[in-house]
């Protein structure tokens, strides 16, 4: 019994030390993964006439289903390394501005998100989720900021029923994650060295994943090509 306990303790100590070592090295000696997402098809951006709240919303808006930038880069995709813990806990913010959700895709760690209304008119925040409780709350002009919890990993669709064209996404991702820029590039910083799974998600083009070998202190490039559905 006594012997068993000692061995158990020793094993625990050794694994604990190993884990400590791994995480510290990971955090200090992690690498950057530069994810490039490409799309070969045509962009899907629709123009729509607006006939209400035109002072704030303008008379025309665009529905951006698939935004393709320079060099066939796909914007508004989310790249993540789910295995990389300890990502920055900066508070996520989404703004209802000009009757659009800005940014179109917000990336956040499970936790709290700040929802702003900079328009001085009524919007509502209506989420479509299965893992998190769904939310449908009015955000009148005098309610400039609201805070909501999204604690489970999920890609949450967000709409406003007052302006039916308004559509945004909140990517609740536990690992290191970022949205691609207009050139289709997302940089994932501080990803632990070693084999890591990289996932890419896009609201209309779906998901893909690849494994990369991350080298501490250097930039590893990985490229994805999304297919039309």
């Amino acid at each position: 019994m006594r012997k068993g306990l000692t061995i158990g303790t020793a094993v625990a100590l050794v694994t604990g030390a190993a884990m400590w070592f791994a995480t510290t090295v990971g955090a200090q000696g992690g690498g950057t993964v530069e994810v490039e997402v490409k799309y070969n098809g045509a962009p899907q951006v629709e123009k729509l006439k607006v006939n209400k709240d035109t002072e704030k919303c303008g008379t025309e808006t665009t529905i951006e289903k698939v935004v393709v930038g320079g060099n066939k880069g796909l914007a508004n995709a989310v790249a993540s390394a789910p295995g990389a813990k300890g990502a920055s806990k900066a508070k996520a913010v989404i703004d209802q501005h000009g009757c659009k959700f800005v940014p179109h895709v917000v990336v956040m760690q499970p936790g709290e998100i700040e929802i702003k209304n900079s328009d001085d008119i009524l919007h509502n925040i209506h989420t479509y989720s299965t893992a998190n409780p769904s939310i449908n709350k009015a955000q009148p002009k005098f309610k400039k900021v609201m805070t909501e919890k999204l604690e489970k990993p999920e890609f949450v669709k967000v709409t406003c029923d007052v302006h039916s064209w308004m559509l945004g996404w909140v990517a609740v991702v536990p690992g290191v994650a970022a949205a691609t820029d207009t050139n289709g590039v997302a940089k994932l910083e501080n990803v632990p060295a070693g084999k890591q799974k990289i996932e890419v998600w896009h609201e209309t083009l779906g998901k893909q994943e690849k494994e990369v070998d991350v080298k501490a202190g250097s930039v590893t490039k990985v490229s994805f090509e999304m297919k039309g559905k």
């Binding site: 209400k52 009524l122 009148p140 002009k141 005098f142 029923d161 007052v162 302006h163 039916s164």
Partner: peptide, 26 residues
């Protein structure tokens, strides 16, 4: 008026607000 219920329900509440034609359930 401050909340702007009329956007959906109309100024006098008769379901004639400007957002009415586009409202959809989940």
């Amino acid at each position: 008026e401050a909340i702007e219920c009329h956007k959906c329900h109309g100024t006098e509440g008769r379901a004639d607000g400007p957002s009415r034609p586009e409202l959809k359930d989940e």
